[in-house]
């Protein structure tokens, strides 16, 4: 295998159950390195991410994109630092139906300094498959309002981390954003 000369990173950050691990499993070309552990408290599922989930897309000769699933809580910000260098894009997954923690959400964006570094950012609303337009508008309004407080606007998409097409749409959008920023 040829050495990777151009390696970039996609950070996928989200709170418990937002679908980070699933999204990486869906599109990663290698068997993802998952760091899930059995939950000690009831969080609505048996396993949760305790470290970094890692997947990878080989894009051609000497080029690859690393997929890093990171826990959304700011106590894990030391893990966010690991992927800051060479960051190609940031996807924040927001799980519909859970309380939207505006402060946690904003702390991720601030930590990655996306405004100064002009890092492409997409907000993905997961668990949104059966929602009406009004429901989606309601969560989008909350997210948009939070983004306004730090003076940015960003695309908000509904994402189904189980579906390849849906995950590829996010990649496609991040690519557009990245391309036009050059």
């Amino acid at each position: 295998m040829s050495a990777v000369k151009d390696y970039k990173k996609l950070a996928i950050v989200g709170e418990v159950g937002s679908g980070k691990t699933q999204l990486i499993s869906t599109i990663s070309e290698i068997a993802p390195l998952e760091t899930e552990a059995r939950s000690s408290v009831d969080i609505g599922k048996e396993f949760t991410t305790v470290g970094i989930d890692y997947g990878r897309l080989q894009l051609g000769k000497g080029m690859a994109l690393g997929l890093y699933g990171l826990p959304g809580q700011s106590r894990y910000s030391f893990l966010w630092d690991i992927v800051r260098d060479g960051l190609w894009g940031l996807l924040i997954l927001v799980k519909y139906g859970e309380h939207f923690h505006e402060d946690v959400f904003l702390s991720v964006i601030k930590h990655f300094d996306i405004v100064a570094l002009q890092t492409p950012i997409v907000i993905g609303v997961s668990h949104s498959e059966s929602l009406s337009d009004d429901d989606i508008d309601a969560i989008a309004s909350k997210i948009e309002s939070a983004l306004q407080t730090i003076g940015i606007t960003a695309p908000i998409l509904t994402v189904d981390p189980r579906k390849v097409e849906s995950c590829l749409s996010v990649l496609e959008l991040l690519d557009y954003l990245s391309r036009y920023r050059n």
Partner: peptide
């Protein structure tokens, strides 16, 4: 771009998605 269209519009219209990306830069 003043602000991004709502998720359903973006999800269903690739051209708009690309155009908005260009206008947002």
């Amino acid at each position: 771009l003043k602000s991004w269209p709502r998720p359903r519009t973006l999800n269903e219209n690739k051209g708009i998605l690309q155009l908005c990306s260009a206008l947002s830069a």
